[in-house]
């Protein structure tokens, strides 16, 4: 009986090790192969190199001309610039709108409050592709030329929900009697809002903004439909590269992107744990 139990415990432990291996082995692989010198068969280890990193930044061309895989460094940097521009705008807009909505639903009771809750959950539950083509039909029908502006507006339509949910969760955990305490001690509504509600909602707002930023940087499906032919964001650029065949620089780009998103995510989680 006892030994059977031990087998169960060991089994579950071993399973959990496998679980984490499944999650992280691919990531380790891609990082490792981004330093692999073999340009043809990436799974064949033929020495350590920084060449792929040098190439994506256009610093060096060690392989022969016809092995110049990347379209152009210019295009890559352009996609990165587009992604950052979009993310900066969407993060700002979605954070302001999402936070305002969360505060409104927290502070006030009004007719149609339930409707708003559904409205704000809907974009998250909507399959990406549905929202993507709906926005495409809408923008084309409205005669708006596709580009950065449509990407920003389109992404905000669902990012507002993410911010709203993160901030709402934070507000829901807040003790309502704190507002009463503040009023009791002589603070008017505005002072209570500024000194009690806002500081306490802040970790939620920052968390929501970071989430919006990461999702915006990563969004592929919706952006794919409403970006038009000339505007590429980073995920679309990589998707395009993949569709044309895999080239070793992708490993290096992927590694850099992983590094970047892990850094941002760690920062966010660290921030959250500090504010407790």
């Amino acid at each position: 009986m006892g030994s059977l139990r031990n087998v169960g415990v060991v089994g579950l432990f071993g399973y959990t090790i496998l679980f984490f291996t499944f999650i992280y082995l691919p990531i380790v692989l891609i990082v490792a192969y981004s330093f692999n010198a073999d340009p043809i068969n990436m799974m064949n280890w033929s020495g350590f190199t920084f060449d792929w990193y040098r190439q994506i930044f256009g610093l060096k061309n060690t392989v022969s001309e016809n092995a110049l895989y990347i379209e152009s460094t210019e295009q890559l940097l352009n996609a990165l610039r587009n992604s950052l521009t979009v993310a900066a705008f969407t993060t700002t807009i979605a954070t302001v709108l999402g936070t305002a909505t969360a505060l409104a639903l927290y502070r006030f009771n009004f007719l149609g409050k339930k409707f708003y809750r559904v409205l704000l959950f809907a974009p998250m539950l909507m399959p990406d592709i549905v929202l993507g083509i709906a926005l495409l039909i809408f923008f084309v029908g409205a005669g708006v030329s596709l580009g950065l502006k449509t990407i920003i507006a389109g992404q905000c339509s669902f990012l507002v929900s993410y911010v709203f949910i993160v901030v709402s969760a934070r507000l829901a955990g807040m003790d309502r009697s704190l507002e009463n305490a503040s009023a009791d001690l002589g603070a008017d509504e505005w002072t209570t809002f500024r000194r009690i509600i806002l500081p306490q909602a802040m970790p939620g707002v920052i968390g929501g903004a970071l989430l919006a930023f990461i999702i915006s940087m990563d969004d592929l499906v919706i952006t794919y439909f409403i970006s038009g032919v000339d505007t590429q964001t980073l995920p679309i650029f990589i998707f395009g590269m993949l569709r044309r065949g895999i080239k070793p620089e992708i490993n290096a780009i992927a590694t850099l992107m992983l590094l970047f998103s892990f850094a941002v995510a760690s920062l966010g989680l660290y921030f959250r744990s500090r504010r407790g």
Binding site: F20, I23, Y24, P26, I27, L29, I30, Y33, N41, M42, M43, I214, M217, D218, L220, L234, P235, I238, F239, L242, I246, I250, A254, M257, L258, S261, F262, V264, A265, S266, L269
Partner: peptide, 30 residues
């Protein structure tokens, strides 16, 4: 720490995470 490890990949680029599996599953893959 385990929760952190599980949520971390969620923040990494979707397309990058899928691309890794192309490398793993293709004929000459891992």
């Amino acid at each position: 720490f385990a929760l952190f490890l599980i949520t971390l990949p969620f923040f990494a680029s979707l397309i990058v995470r899928l691309f890794i599996w192309v490398l793993i599953l293709k004929k000459t893959g891992f």
